[in-house]
Structures are given as C-alpha cells and as structure tokens.
C-alpha cells in the first residue's frame, strides 16, 4: 500500500491543486452527463407540455410548432361551453374534485387503521388476509368492470360520483394498506409499549402515539389517491351516463371524440385546465411523496 499512501494527500495537508482541479473537472463532466441524459429523456415530456401551452394561446401554429398571434379564444370554454350539448364546466370541475376528495378520504379512513391492525396485531387469518389483498391488487381493475357495474346497480350507486370513488378506492386499497403497513412497521415497538404501559387503550395508542408518526404515509397515500381520483377515466365513462355527473376526463374525451374535426387549440386549453391543479398539488406536496418507500419512510421524517 505504500504507493497509494504516496498518491493520496495526508490528512490535514493541503491537497494538490492539480488533483483537485482534475477531480472537479471529472465531477463536472459527470454532472453534465447526468443532466444531459435527464434533459434528453425528459425533453419529449417538456415539449409536450410546451406544445399545449403554445397551442392554447396561439391563433395558429405554423408547421405545428411555431406560434403565430396571441389569443384567448381557445379558453372560451371557461365562460361558454363548446356547444349546447356540453355540461357546465364548473359543475364538471366540482364533480372531478368531489371524486378526488372522496377517494382520498375513503382511502385514508380505511387504509390507516387496517394497516395498523395488520402491522401490530396478531389474529387468525392475518397472513391470508395480507396475501389476499396482494392478489386483489394483482387483478387489473378492468376485468372487474362488469361485476362492479352490477354491484353498483344493486346498491343504486350508478350515475353517482360516490359509486365511482368507492370502486376506485376499493381497488386501490391494497396498495394503500401495504404502504401504510410499511410506515407502521418502521416504528419501534418501544414507543407503542410505553403508551400501553402508561394506561392508554389500543385506540388511544393508535390515535395519539402512532398516527402522528405515520403522517408522512398518510400524506403519501392521500396524494396518490387524489391524483388517481382526479385522473380517473374508465370507471367514470362506464358508471356514469348522465352528462351532469361527468368529470373533466370525460369532458375532454368528448372534445377529442374520434369522428370530430378536432379543435386542437380548445383541446390544449382544456387539457391545461385539467392538469394545472394536479401540477400545483404535486408542486406543494412532492416532498412527502419523495419519502415513500415500500418499507416506510426514507430520510429524516
């Protein structure tokens, strides 16, 4: 090892500036490479969003890319529907919000206590239950479409937003339960035992001691649920026939159609209107999402 020892600057000694410069150049080159790669792979996405913005504010896009003339004409759907046969936009937006919030509340309300029970309690059939939730998650939701249609019909929940978010939440619950279980598993038993020894009941222990510690998990499944609910399409068009109960995804689908002479400006504007809340939501909550791993939290939560 003497050669290595010679090449390395001894601790506490000033480093060779040439070596440091070479290291910096290498790091810069590496960073440049990483950034270049990330920019190249994300360029199509950014270009897609850029095209939406340009298209929605331009009178025309020359050769499909170069904007010509500024206009707000494509945003007229905010105050007048594209035709007499479209539902009110703001009602549709409210329906979408109702679906997203309903799904979020259902997911949190069910997944949080369920995951606690699965993580901390021993009862017969626990392993089987866990396995079954995984199997349920393995089913593509689309295969259950007809069955769930008849269930909703029996329950009188067709044509209603709660019908959609109950089905959607039910199919997403395995994921929520497993994510939350990971968060609970990461909490030391000692914390819970202290509370129990001090005389707290199980419910109190869960509510007052455990729940505050898994809030990042609750935030994560809330964000996921909200985004999934906001963007839901297939269940909406299957379970809802009344245009007054449409959500924004069915509204935009109607603008696209497959027969119409598509107004790309209008489509771009409505698409931006649709994704803007999700982007904003994501912008403010991404720090919680970054903490999620299947095993619980990451970093110092």
């Amino acid at each position: 090892m003497p050669e290595l020892a010679q090449n390395r600057p001894a601790a506490g000694l000033r480093a060779d500036p040439r070596v440091l410069a070479r290291e910096r150049r290498r790091e810069r080159a590496l960073a440049f490479g990483v950034y270049a790669f990330l920019i190249i792979v994300s360029l199509p996405l950014v270009a897609g969003y850029g095209w939406l913005v340009l298209n929605s504010f331009s009178t025309e896009l020359v050769h499909g890319v170069w904007p010509e003339g500024f206009t707000l004409r494509h945003w007229r759907f905010l105050w007048e529907p594209p035709s007499d046969y479209y539902p009110d936009l703001w009602r549709t937006t409210w329906n979408t919000l109702w679906l997203a919030i309903g799904m979020t509340v259902t997911m949190v309300a069910v997944a949080t206590p369920t995951a606690y029970a699965l993580s901390r309690m021993k009862f017969r059939g626990r392993s089987l239950f866990l396995a079954l939730t995984l199997i349920l998650h393995a089913f593509p939701g689309i295969t259950l479409l007809i069955a769930t249609y008849y269930v909703l019909r029996t329950l009188g929940l067709l044509n209603s937003i709660p019908g959609v978010f109950l089905v959607k939440a039910a199919l997403m619950l395995p994921l929520g339960v497993w994510v939350m279980k990971g968060f609970y598993d990461a909490i030391s038993w000692d914390v819970e035992m202290s509370a129990l020894v001090d005389g707290a009941s199980r419910i109190q222990t869960w509510y007052k001691v455990m729940l505050p510690q898994v809030m990042p998990g609750v935030a994560s499944i809330s964000i996921f649920s909200f985004i999934y609910g906001w963007s839901e399409y297939i269940y909406v068009i299957t379970f809802i026939q009344d245009k007054n109960a449409w959500t924004l995804s069915s509204y935009i689908n109607s603008i696209v159609g497959d027969y119409r002479f598509l107004d790309y400006g209008l489509l771009s504007a409505t698409a931006l209107f649709y994704i803007a809340p999700v982007l904003l939501f994501f912008f403010f909550t991404q720090k919680y999402l970054m903490r999620v791993t299947i095993g619980g939290t990451k970093g110092g939560s």
Partner: peptide
C-alpha cells in the same frame, strides 16, 4: 346530441339500459 363515436354512444346506451 352525441358527437364522440358510435362505439361510445352504444356503450352509453347499453349501460343505461342495463341499469
């Protein structure tokens, strides 16, 4: 008045009838 497609119109009608 539906302007999307025949498929989506028929799906909508059939699902409504089935309800």
């Amino acid at each position: 008045f539906w302007t999307e497609s025949w498929d989506s119109f028929r799906r909508r009608a059939i699902l409504a009838f089935e309800s």
